[in-house]
Design a protein around this nucleic acid. Structure first.
Lengths: 208, 208
DNA sequence: TGCTGTTCTTAACCTCGGTTAATGCGCCCT
DNA sequence: AGGGCGCATTAACCGAGGTTAAGAACAGCA
């Protein structure tokens, strides 16, 4: 773990709510650096997840795989975000979500139970955790509204605004899966957009 | 506020995580009873929300209204649940969500800022808040998966399992809106189901 | 009793996205 | 150079759900 990496982690935590030096001194040694190659899994459906990570470099996706083997990309994770099989960690159950590196990625990894145990000693840390999950909840609400109220083309435009860097780094079928459509449909949409120009879209409140 | 009402509130909080008597003694006086008639609003889009409520009796819906006046029912709230324009409360901004009573409803209402200020004095209260929002996050994840991976018919079946009491109490167009379809489509689905019997459905992990 | 408003149903037509399959393109390998 | 592979595109067809509009059932009420 380089100084730059821990600084990014500390900075990210502090941005959410104040973090005391005492809490940080307990938090910092819990994390270990880890490299993932493209295609490597950080968590797999059916496993009981135990780890939480912070992305320093690279990109990951969380996805759900149906019984028939279809995949739905739920979220993309890039530099400065936390990644983990949250539902499994929170409920202390097996996860049904897969977490996979889309490219070579650098993570800071901690044991989730050990981390949350610190909440007892450091109230400020639990406050940060509360704020983080609240913010994530709001993001989920926005995503829900887009899924229901926006066309696939509108969702595609939003994706490009949300992840301007990602579009060129990952294959289009991953983007299609994130939008909840097939690669064929995304290709049609892209053609329509270059021919006719992007059409007007619903104003769904923005995250951040 | 009757004793039965405060008992339900305390019981609901305690189920999430331990609640000290000291914290409860500070929490309890913050809440005031309020009745809503069917159709009354607890929060309206464009307002800056300040209140959080606990449903003791009745039913409410949260919904988003598009620029064209179309409504999408995001959630139903019934006895024993918390209701509020969460995104607005959390981010201290105007809300884009409406909260409306679907039938005569009894709420216990508190000022959100006053309530969250208690987190400073009572760590256990902030823990409960963290757990509550975590659980809500998991519910949102499940809803997202259903929206993307399940057909309208499958979502309808899930709705009936999730709210077995509600189906008979509220008009079908509210259910259709919750499912993200039109009343016409729901009517078609209902006919298909009584004729052919409900079809097989995707196994999306259950909430609760 | 009839009028009115609300909700649900049904039918006819249309659109968007799914499905399947063929084609093309770039890239890696030997 | 040639073969193979992964990915994007395109076309043809299909089906779920949207749209519009017309009835049916029912309740409230003068």
């Amino acid at each position: 773990m380089t100084a730059e990496e821990t600084t990014l982690l500390r900075h990210t935590l502090t941005q959410v709510a104040p973090l005391s030096d005492a809490a940080w001194n307990d938090v910092q040694p819990l994390f270990r650096g880890r490299m993932l190659a493209a295609g490597d899994y950080f968590a797999q459906a059916g496993e009981h997840p135990t780890e939480l990570a912070f992305v320093v470099e690279g990109a990951l996706r969380s996805f759900y795989r149906t019984d028939e083997g279809n995949e739905y990309n739920k979220t993309f994770f890039t530099r400065g975000t936390f990644v983990g099989a949250l539902a499994g960690l929170i409920q202390n159950t097996e996860t049904y979500i897969n977490l996979q590196a889309l490219e070579a990625s650098r993570l800071l990894v901690t044991d989730y139970r050990t981390f949350t145990a610190l909440y007892n000693r450091h109230h400020d840390l639990e406050r940060i955790a509360r704020r983080v999950i609240e913010i994530e909840w709001v993001k989920k609400e926005h995503r829900e509204l887009r899924l229901v109220l926006c066309s696939a083309e509108e969702r595609y435009v939003y994706f490009r605004e949300e992840h301007p860097d990602l579009e060129l780094r990952i294959p289009q079928y991953h983007i299609a899966s994130y939008l909840g459509i097939t690669p064929v449909a995304l290709s049609r949409i892209r053609r329509r957009m270059v021919q006719d120009g992007p059409s007007e879209r619903q104003q769904i409140p923005r995250t951040s």
